[in-house]
Amino acid sequence: MKLVIENLTCAFGGFRAVDEVSFEAESGGLVGVIGPNGAGKSTLFSLITGFLAGQGGTVRLDGHDISALPPHERARAGMVRTFQVPKEFAHLTVRENLMAAAPNQSGENLVDLFLRPAAIRREESAIAARVDDTIAFLKLGAVADVPSGKLSGGQKKLLELGRVLMTRPKLILLDEPFAGVNPVLIEEISGHIRALNADGIGFIIIEHDLGALSRLAGALHVMDRGRLIASGAPGEVLKRANVREAYLGGAA
């Protein structure tokens, strides 16, 4: 699957949070988006995934213009995001969070619920098996039956990744997967991302932890004040003078 964004723009009043940003990403690729706080990275994610309606530009998936689709339909097309602040279903357990994320459940239909209970039980046990695999993959076994609101920040990030995986995505947009996560867990999450990427899932990752991100990403896009100021291989992009000035304040 190939995502192409062209001239995406979003203004709040006179302030252009995202200003004519264009780039591409595809299944199997791993693209990083960096930039100082307030550069417009999360706003860009919301424009791509349909959570915000911008003032211009197009979002194309495999050539189809999806700019007018609501968020849930874009997700159903295989492009699924996480959030900077995890949005877990706090009163549901980790297992229930993951179960809820599975697509096309006939048990979510009230008529089927009362007329085809046996079929739904079969479907539930198939989903439960996938959930067990996901829990094992993310090593969340110890907290599987804990209400997710009680998890640590890092565990919530893992849970969000798990929920996204349950949807069988082709392209995953991660918003700061390492923020507030301890170094050991960062390595673990990086490992999961690498493994999934090797399986052909594409990633676009917003991250402040440049070290971890540049070890993962094949290409970096740098944003500053809503604009894309640089794109390229991590080692090369981070050396550029305008990037160092915008992002690192010239100090590093």
């Binding site: 968020p71 159903r76 619920l113």
Partner: peptide
């Protein structure tokens, strides 16, 4: 599953949309 989904909506509607 319907009950699970409405509770998910109560807890976080945006995340439900994000999951398709």
């Amino acid at each position: 599953p319907f009950g699970r989904m409405i509770e998910a909506i109560r807890d976080n509607e945006e995340a439900v949309k994000a999951l398709g």
